[in-house]
Computed example of a mutant assay.
Amino acid sequence: MNVDLRRLFDRDPRPDPCEPTEVVHRDDLVLWHRPSATRSPWASGVLHYRWTEASADRGIDEVLSYFAARDTPFTWHVPDDGQPSDLGARLRARGFILEAQTDMLVADLPIVGLRINPAIDVVDVTDERTLRDSVLVQHPDWDDERRDRLLRERRAYLGCAGHLRHFALAYLDGRPIASARWRFSTRFRAIGLSGAETLPAYQNRGAYSTLVDYRARIALARGCQYATILADVRTSAPILRKRGFASVGTAEIYVWPETRSSSS
């Protein structure tokens, strides 16, 4: 299959059938809003934009008005080929926070050479125990009330047939230490890797690479040809570049946080 590898990062704007999602899909703008009781900015965001220098500020105004009307924090994905080229600077001037600078990495499957820790057991999140453990690992800094809201949402999501996102959890000596997520492309034979949090006390023990290997093997068994990830240039990107992943571009991720959303 001959594929422009950058296209592997084109997100299908159609909503997940198991999540209530509102989508704006135009040639110049694609965004989605998924109401979440946790008020996480990662639940909604701008997936695509294409404006002229003259129309960009009006476009930003439209996006801000859209999410302000829904009182929702959100993310904004700014790729290196986005138009206009100075959109990142415009967002920073408006008060957006630069959350991450990422490499758009792609690897052919299978992936070889990953540092695997054989003492780590990885399982799919499928029951109440793994569900609770995964939320605790993913958000150790949240209070119990906010984690409970996410638990209710995720419990309902995993109970819905046809959900597109999947969750894995790593255990070491019976303790949950790391979590990760993935989604299969609806357009290509590819898996999109996301997440991957490791509790600070268990970092540098191979949990991240072990979770990458686990998801890559699942994808290979499913018939996928590629694995993709937006990898943070400070942390995961250097690891993955040594293990067969190649960059096909870069992207910045901006956040309009809850505090700005509530006051806008």
Rank of each mutant, 00 (worst) to 15 (best):
R7H: 14
R7F: 12
L8C: 06
F9W: 00
D10T: 15
R14L: 12
D16K: 00
P20Y: 06
P20A: 05
R26T: 15
L31D: 01
H33T: 13
P35L: 08
P35T: 11
T38R: 08
T38I: 08
T38Q: 12
S40R: 08
S44R: 03
R50Y: 10
T52N: 11
A54K: 15
D61P: 09
E62N: 05
F67K: 02
F67P: 08
F74S: 05
P79M: 08
F96C: 04
F96H: 07
V112H: 15
G113P: 07
G113Y: 05
A119E: 08
I120R: 03
D121L: 15
V125M: 06
E128S: 14
R129E: 12
T130V: 02
L131R: 01
R132H: 11
R132G: 15
D133T: 09
V135F: 04
V137N: 06
V137A: 04
Q138H: 14
D141T: 10
D141F: 07
E145A: 14
R146I: 10
R146L: 14
Y157F: 09
G159H: 11
H163L: 08
F167M: 08
T186G: 13
I191D: 00
G192P: 04
L193G: 04
S194Y: 12
S194W: 11
A196L: 09
E197K: 10
T198L: 04
T198D: 06
T198F: 04
P200G: 09
Q203W: 13
R205W: 02
G206C: 11
T210L: 07
Y214K: 02
Y214R: 03
R215C: 03
A216L: 09
A219E: 02
A219T: 03
G223H: 11
Q225Y: 06
Q225I: 01
Y226K: 05
Y226N: 02
T228R: 04
I229A: 13
L230A: 11
D232G: 10
R234P: 03
A237E: 01
I239W: 08
L240S: 00
R243H: 14
S247M: 03
E252V: 03
W256L: 02
R260E: 01
S262T: 13
